[in-house]
Design a protein around this nucleic acid. Sequence first.
DNA 1: TAGGCCATCTGGTCCT
DNA 2: AGGACCAGATGGCCTA
Length: 316
Amino acid sequence: MEEKNEQIEAITKDGDDDEDAIKGLEYDDEEEDEEEEDGDDGKPKRRGPKKKKMTKARLLRFKMRRVKANARERNRMHGLNDALESLRKVVPCYSKTQKLSKIETLRLAKNYIWALSEILRSGKSPDLMSFVQALCKGLSQPTTNLVAGCLQLNPRTFLPEQSQEIPSHMQTASASFTSHPYSYQNPGLPSPPYGTMDSSHIFHVKPHSYGSALEPFFETPLTDCTSPSFDGPLSPPLSVNGNFSFKHEPSSEFEKNYAFSMHYPGAGLAGTQGHASLYGGAAQRCDIPMENIMAYDGHSHHERIMNAQLSAIFHE
DNA sequence: TAGGCCATCTGGTCCT
DNA sequence: AGGACCAGATGGCCTA
């Protein structure tokens, strides 16, 4: 990158591109001169301010202005990209290795904002499937796969048009997932890196809701493409096999609390005590492995705490 | 090789 | 005059 910039600098210093622009300007001036001559022949003179002649000094100033303008524009775009990078980090599924494109970042951010707004508006916690469904609305297939990968979910289970046509081998897997949702593993998903899904992105998971991936999210039918909340149709059919993994043995107290607040944020950061009473005990746990959630480009400790707090706020 | 994504350059427009 | 912003053009890189 540095090298490229240096090359560009060199080119601009050499002035090859500017030479062309300057040639153009000189040509303009010649035209102007011709017009002035025409005016002498009785034809109407061109209105407006007279173009000044391109002297060497003016050419040099123009050149300098152009170089400065290019540098400013570069900086401006870098600033824009920095801002976009910041956005990538706060949107679900951040990954340094597999970056979302600009347009996909904006789309995902829009969906994310919409989903969070709906949570605030309705005061309800969505089930994971519906939440992911909302996040993936209008995203491209690769991005949908990425989001699914972050969550270790099978895109087929939350995209309506795919769920109808699950191949037989997948149906078996899906059935086993429905009955044993916490132990299902499908090896078909492409290997990492995926991004991360931090605590603020996951809300409480109701096991029974996995069979209802087609259900609307907060009374708003996701399949309703006429909804003003979204634009554009769903992504094309997906081809990636799922990979559910809901086993996790927290290794530290922080992890325990963190994992709990993530999956059962209704209990806030109070620990795992209220867990069984709320969700009928361990049989109904739905844990996504920590290594998957914090995988690859894990957020800092500070960010994790912030996310945990954020998730607690949502469910107070 | 086509298509997607990206960085950069450039000229136009608006504003200070 | 100069800076910010924008959109079009262009070329490079990568991947299916």
